[in-house]
Design a protein around this nucleic acid. Structure first.
Lengths: 176, 176
DNA sequence: CCTCGTTATGTCAGCGACTGTCATCACTGG
DNA sequence: CCAGTGATGACAGTCGCTGACATAACGAGG
């Protein structure tokens, strides 16, 4: 993963072949594909931890909490995960922003997060459509907060998530 | 596009090569790639019309309308686009659901829709984060309505969008 | 200390997606 | 009728990705 990120930053994503990445890591191309499903995945492998953390946190929220509030709580729970990782996140994001193929994978990961969140909500007896909407809303809040976090200086991800959540509530009530 | 959909339904997405598609259409593989950026795109080319319609509708909404309401109006405007296309949409959706690569492209198209919606809102002097959130919320409503439309019988897409919008408002207010 | 099963890695051959390049050919405006 | 433009074909090549088989590392049990 480190070799890949280095090469992507240095020479660009599509100037870097999988063979290059493997060689820098002292491995063969075949071995690369045993660890990562495809070339893109090497940049997204870590995101699994995030998803797991959020899902676990959602499971721990008391059942009487309203769906969207539960999702917001779960998303906030992984905020510490971002501490001290801003520089690395920015490098990674620059690479992603430079290539549509990678942006596609990124939104795909967010969609997956939405899916598992919705599943978690249904397990709490939330209706199907409500679960879908609350999950999507939660992901939207997370994404908006992440953008602000990357752009800003040293701000705490947890606080930003809270702010974006409030903003969402305002936007929805105004558009009601 | 027709040749591709037929072959995908008949033999499956990855059992179908681009050469197969091109041959059935009476063309060469090279020509296929002059019309579609990649193999997936042949299933999504039509979606551009939808996006254009929504963006255009958003531009036509009076500026004093609140962001989320404007987005909801714009999304509703393309509801007639779906009339009489349910069977074809279901075939296409079955193919997409059968292959992760295609699902990735689909969410990517939704993300793109969200982006252009947010851009349209910013042109209406909506703040950056509010625009992002309202756009994402609008796309979430659209997706939820589309799922209901595909699953149900003969229901009007416009009505479903309205219902999902109401549901979103309820979910957000309950989770406030 | 020596197997033996398990797991990570290497090697090789091959398919199919995708691209660059050049030639051909239909069509269109003058 | 000619020149220019755009769509297509032909061909070679790169690279992402996979299957199959062989080999090396490594930990458990005798």
């Amino acid at each position: 993963m480190q070799s890949a990120l280095d090469l992507f930053v240095e020479h660009g994503y599509d100037q870097t072949t999988v063979a290059d990445i493997a060689a820098r890591a002292g491995l063969t191309e075949r071995t690369f594909f045993r660890h990562f499903a495809d070339k893109r995945e090497v940049l997204f492998h870590g995101g699994q931890l995030l998803e797991d953390g959020i899902v676990e946190a959602l499971a721990g929220v008391p059942p009487e909490v309203a769906p969207l509030a539960a999702v917001a709580t779960a998303v906030s729970a992984v905020a510490p995960f971002f501490d001290g990782r801003k520089e690395r996140s920015r490098m990674r994001q620059r690479v992603i922003d430079s290539h549509p193929e990678l942006q596609e994978r990124e939104v795909s990961k967010m969609a997956r997060l939405s899916l598992v969140l919705a599943a978690g909500l249904r397990a709490r007896d939330v209706g199907d459509t409500a679960a879908r909407l609350a999950a999507d809303a939660g992901v939207a809040v997370f994404r908006a907060a992440f953008v602000l976090w990357l752009a800003g200086e040293g701000e705490d991800m947890g606080a930003l998530i809270g702010e974006c959540f409030d903003e969402l509530v305002k936007v929805v009530e105004a558009g009601r």
